[in-house]
Design a protein around this nucleic acid. Structure first.
Ligand code: MN
Ligand code: MN
Ligand code: ZN
Ligand code: ZN
Lengths: 123, 123
DNA sequence: CCAAATTATGCAACTAAGTCGCAAAGGAAA
DNA sequence: TTTCCTTTGCGACTTAGTTGCATAATTTGG
């Protein structure tokens, strides 16, 4: 399994397991944030949800993964990149990644979630 | 009980009940968004949580109340006003209302939630 | 290469915010 | 007051995510 990932785990000083590799592989291929069920569907290996959530928590604390909540009360995950916003349409529930400029905000912003109606659903 | 509120209920064409009046009174006095438990604490009358959530849902669909989720997986409620952002500090969990300028965003934005570290907690 | 130490995993039980069905109570209108 | 319709309380339920614990896998270093 991916020589690349072996190194990633070494860098972050965590053990290499197929569960972890599998999660990261799915997230690497994904072109939008995914929730647990969606990631599970795309995974080659099966793993318990406890394992999934514990590993995702670890990835998050290491800064490898970013998460936010959509309007279905589920966590959505994506590989960390530059801070950007997520627009969630409350009608079609589609999630769109987008850049926004907040201007100056005191403190440090790590997550931006916008909700509303997307342009497709907007009458 | 408040003559004012009687009129509000008439305007929105919903029945006047002490439960509803009580919820709105708490929200009117509040100076930041509150969750169910917090609203309950500030309420003079007691009511079942089912009643609370059904009424809040009605208020929301009538556009009287706005809600969003904080990082504790609870809904926070406030009386509707102009669309503004809420900053949630993931360390002290304080919620701050603030104006932000998103620039141009396609579609209609009704909720803006920022998470991160507030200036007090920022080392 | 192997044994010990450490960390991860699966399972099942649990948590808790919010929802739902239903029978009883309350409000509006006449 | 009577009738009709809406709201309420209660308890059971839902479900995403969490936790404890025994077992299994990975790392290390001798
Ligand atoms: Mn994104
Ligand atoms: Mn606000
Ligand atoms: Zn949409
Ligand atoms: Zn803070």
């Amino acid at each position: 399994m991916s020589e690349q990932l072996q190194n990633v785990f070494q860098q972050y000083d965590i053990k290499f397991t197929t569960a972890r590799a599998s999660i990261l592989e799915v997230l690497k291929v994904a072109n939008s944030p995914l929730n647990y069920e969606q990631i599970k569907e795309h995974m080659s290996v099966k793993m318990d949800k406890a394992t999934f959530y514990r590993n995702i928590a670890k990835f998050e604390e290491l800064g490898m993964v970013h998460k936010f909540e959509s309007d279905d009360r589920k966590w959505y995950f994506e590989l960390s990149s530059t801070t950007h916003a997520h627009f969630i349409c409350e009608q079609c529930h589609k999630i769109t990644c987008m850049e926004v400029d907040l201007g100056k905000v005191e403190g440090e912003v790590t997550s931006i979630v916008l909700k509303g109606t997307c342009k497709e659903c907007h009458s």
